[in-house]
Amino acid sequence: MFNFIIRRLFWAIAIIFAAMTLTFILTYMIPADPARQVAGPQATELEIANVRESLGLNDPVLVQYSRYFWNIIHGDFGRSWMFRRPVTEAVFGRLPASLQLGIAAASVELILGGAIGAISAVYRYKWPDRLSMGIALVALSLPSFWFGLVLLFVFGFLIPIFPLGGYGEVKHVVLPALAVGIPYSAWYARMFRSSIREVMSEHYVRAVRAKGLSGRVVFLRHILPNALIPIVTMWGMDLGSFVGGLALVEVVFGWPGVGWQAVEAARSLDVPLVMGSVLLVSALMAFANLAVDISYRWLDPRVVFD
């Protein structure tokens, strides 16, 4: 177990290192002149040249790369051109909102997907199964940002139950969480259904049935926990990817998360903020996946790594 954790930790560090190299290359490729961006629109050629020198943009690539590397391992991710403050502050400032929406959306997908998947598995080939799998097929074809716009139009404008946007209270999070959670829950329903069917055909399930346990006890005590294992793994990874991955829905609902900020930064060519968001979210995801891997092993002792 210890060796396993150490190896996964090295993998997480490798991901962060790769993200660092990638963001550096992308920054280097940018067609706009960073010095001009930092100096501002009214700057003279001399001022721009000074800024270029002070930013070290005249140094060789490898020198710039090692400086970038050195700064990052010391926690300096550069300054946002748009907000004129450190990238770390800007990203961490938006993190609570992203986490809130991510957790809400992930809860919707797990609860809805789990319930529909379980019903489908129990009533396989009967009408509840066919109906829910049909709905799931349509739901997973929904683009979440468009579905969000439709939800806004119906429940924010035509029947004004929920606010048209904003952040802070529970009522604000409902529509964006549904916009993400409903399409994703369709995948969960499909996966959970096949996972339950798989466990149902295991020998140990037949054994407890033969022992005379009631159907309900067999399902709740023996089938459900085992069928949940692959779902929990997927859920943990989703939770990690939702932190930066919900940019579209955040834009639709004006939700002040990391993703929306990254989109705004991209639109105004704020390169340090875009790259810093990629890098910080990569690091977060790497550690979220690490936690998932460890909990996977804890949940299912049968899984042996190496």
Binding site: V263, A266, V274, S277
Partner: peptide, 21 residues
Amino acid sequence: VDLALGFPALLLQIALATVLP
């Protein structure tokens, strides 16, 4: 492949779209 799966796909795509013409 594992590295690519560990990256925040949408954010990296946004970053790429920013940099490329």
